[in-house]
Simulated assay, not measured.
Amino acid sequence: MEYIAACDTDVGITKKINQDSVCIKTAKTNTGRAALILVCDGMGGLSRGELASAEVVRSFAEWFDRELPFELPEWDWHTAAHNVISRLRRLNAKLVAYGRRECLQLGTTATGIIAVDSQFMTFHVGDTRIYKVSDKLSQLTDDHTFVNREVKLGNMTPEEARTDPLRNALVQCIGVTDDVFPEVKLGDLENGVNYMICSDGFRHVLTEKELFEELSPKKLTTKADMQKQLRQLIDTVKDRDETDNITAALFRPEL
């Protein structure tokens, strides 16, 4: 079994600071393969969003390096899901407390994949998305946004949601409110499928057809392919005048 992964990030064409943070870690241990792929989008309208996103990435990266090796021999996915939710809630409480103490507003999305051998878990707070690219494009996460909630309640159509002034307003993120309810899902990895995590700045001006065609697992089979294509898509996004930071990561299991 092999894991192939790549990522890229860009400050974009208007902002002075890149508030996105991204992390890719893979390891081969005595008990098998493991991987962490994480994208955090610091809140552009809040001060110190880059601090919030970096803190979440730092916490999960340290867990992968220092704690995961001792957890793998007795790995249990339900325990792992409980631990991820607890970590996100602790990070939320820490950032909320820091913001109140320093009179700052800071927040971040947190969306990632943890893979161990042939299985994986997604964890998600906010509107950063995970897609599976196989013979079709499938969105694996549910946007924690005001408009998505209204669409589900039947108060708004998907067409109205795309142009609503509050389309970027989050109802959940890390570091803003006292309560956070992470979305966690378990699944089996599919051989030769590309999994993609991206901030909203990456996907805003790209169609689903473009995402499917440009990130096709038949087209991207190596890390070099992935890296080159992510940069080309980021350049396309910038050419289309996207004003946000732009970040994406690709993960491909070869079972």
Rank of each mutant, 00 (worst) to 15 (best):
R252Q: 14
I174T: 07
N155G: 13
G201N: 03
D239Q: 10
K228N: 12
H78I: 08
T221Q: 14
D142K: 09
E242P: 09
L186T: 08
I114V: 14
P69A: 06
S47M: 06
Q19F: 04
K152C: 13
Q139D: 01
K136R: 14
S216F: 02
T29Q: 10
I17D: 04
R231G: 05
V171G: 11
D127V: 02
L95F: 09
R162M: 14
E150F: 03
S47T: 09
E71I: 09
R89E: 13
E242C: 15
F146A: 02
I197F: 11
D235W: 05
D188W: 10
D76V: 05
V116D: 04
E254N: 12
Q229M: 15
E210D: 03
D235P: 06
W63K: 02
I17C: 02
S21K: 06
D135F: 13
K28C: 13
C198E: 00
I114G: 00
G154K: 01
A161V: 03
S216Y: 04
V193Y: 00
A5I: 03
L189M: 14
F202L: 12
M156F: 10
R100L: 13
K132R: 14
L137G: 08
K223P: 02
D127T: 05
E102Y: 10
Q227H: 12
E62C: 11
N18Q: 00
F202E: 04
E190W: 00
Q139L: 15
L189C: 13
T236N: 08
R58S: 13
R101P: 00
L170F: 15
N191P: 11
S118M: 06
D20L: 06
K132V: 04
F64H: 06
S47P: 05
R90E: 12
V133Y: 01
L68F: 09
L36D: 01
F181M: 08
G112K: 03
G154L: 07
N83F: 09
G201H: 03
V84A: 13
I197N: 05
D135A: 11
N155Y: 11
K152I: 01
K28H: 10
L46Y: 14
K209M: 13
D239A: 15
W75D: 02
V184A: 09
L137A: 05
D244A: 09
M156G: 09
G49Q: 02
A224L: 15
F202W: 03
L189G: 12
R167P: 04
C198A: 15
H144W: 00
D20F: 13
V11C: 15
K219S: 06
T163K: 08
S59K: 05
A5V: 12
N245R: 01
F64V: 03
K223V: 14
I246D: 04
T222I: 11
T247K: 07
T247L: 06
L72R: 02
E102I: 02
S21E: 04
D188F: 14
K94G: 03
D239I: 04
I114C: 00
P182V: 08
H204D: 13
K219C: 03
C173P: 05
